[in-house]
């Protein structure tokens, strides 16, 4: 029992350490930031927070942008992944199998290596500086994991249920809407949360596709704060922005921890 508690404390320190250090830094005055662990003098301040929140455009704007990107990407991914997963989960055809292999191969291609070329795509189709356009690469990048999780969940459902629904006269859309999707809700919600967090956090594509400062997403905005001075990184303001930006994610993870784990179990990844 004792040993378990010690292990848990070590685990929490390791997981939270860097974030705690950010919080510590964010409340330290600029003089004391370069003298950590020293307590004398003008130690604590909330100036960094005031600075971040009073900037133009206001900080909540970045939260809003990231939120929009996260929601649209999640929605688009589920819209495409659910029908595709339904087919893959229920069919043994060569077509479905080759699609699965295609997805796995795609997921092996390191996505950061894609963004140079994707920038050309964005330019050719006029997708730059459009928050909604970001959901196109984000959905595609999330597709392999989403299809993997959702098709396993569809596969786990007994065939009888869908057949009973067919006999009852439900067409494909109605079967999905009234019978199948409600039954795989755990897998859908955990997939949705994973996609949302990925889209919220994505950096290289967001950096290159969006240049207008009132449209940039949260990670890009924080990185901009860090890069705003060429001489030294303004760590105080940067840490304050990190802490503020982390709050929604902390809430999501705390609220949905159970759904994330149980959804992965339902869509148990099989071979």
């Amino acid at each position: 029992m004792k040993r378990q508690n010690i292990l848990i404390i070590i685990l929490l320190l390791w997981s939270l350490g860097p974030l705690l250090w950010q919080i510590y830094t964010s409340f330290s005055t600029t003089e004391s930031i370069i003298r950590p662990f020293e307590t004398e003098g003008n130690r604590w301040t909330i100036d960094h927070y005031i600075q971040v929140l009073n900037a133009d455009p206001p900080f909540w704007r970045y939260l809003f942008n990231s939120f929009i990107v996260g929601i649209t990407s999640t929605f688009l991914t589920l819209l495409l992944a659910i029908p595709a997963s339904y087919v893959i989960g229920n069919s043994n055809s060569k077509f479905a199998k080759s699609f699965k292999i295609l997805l796995l191969t795609a997921s092996l291609f390191p996505y950061v290596l894609l963004f140079l070329s994707l920038l050309e795509v964005a330019r050719d189709f006029g997708l730059g500086n459009n928050l909604f356009a970001l959901c196109i690469p984000y959905s595609a990048l999330s597709m392999p994991l989403a299809v993997l999780l959702l098709s396993a969940a569809f596969k786990d459902l007994p065939n009888d249920l869908e057949e009973a629904a067919r006999i009852e006269g439900l067409n494909l859309w109605q079967r999905l809407r009234y019978v199948l999707m409600p039954l795989i809700t755990p897998a859908i919600s955990s997939t949705a949360i994973i996609i949302f967090i990925f889209s919220w956090n994505e950096y290289p594509i967001a950096l290159t596709w969006i240049t207008k400062s009132n449209l940039i997403t949260l990670p890009v905005a924080i990185a901009r704060i860090a890069g705003s001075s060429i001489y030294s990184v303004p760590y105080g303001a940067y840490a304050a922005a990190t802490v503020l930006g982390a709050i929604p994610l902390i809430l999501i993870v705390l609220l949905f921890q159970r759904q994330i784990v149980s959804g992965l179990t339902q869509g148990a990844i099989k071979g």
Binding site: I8, S15, T25, W200, A223, Y235, L249, I250
Partner: peptide
């Protein structure tokens, strides 16, 4: 549940931002 959630946190935070955080942690001399 709370411990599990807190353990998940590093995964949920943006890579770029936390990379900068780590650079600060490994910073010499501060």
């Amino acid at each position: 549940g709370v411990v599990r959630a807190l353990t998940l946190l590093p995964w949920a935070l943006p890579t770029t931002i936390m990379a900068l955080g780590w650079r600060w942690i490994f910073n010499t001399p501060y």
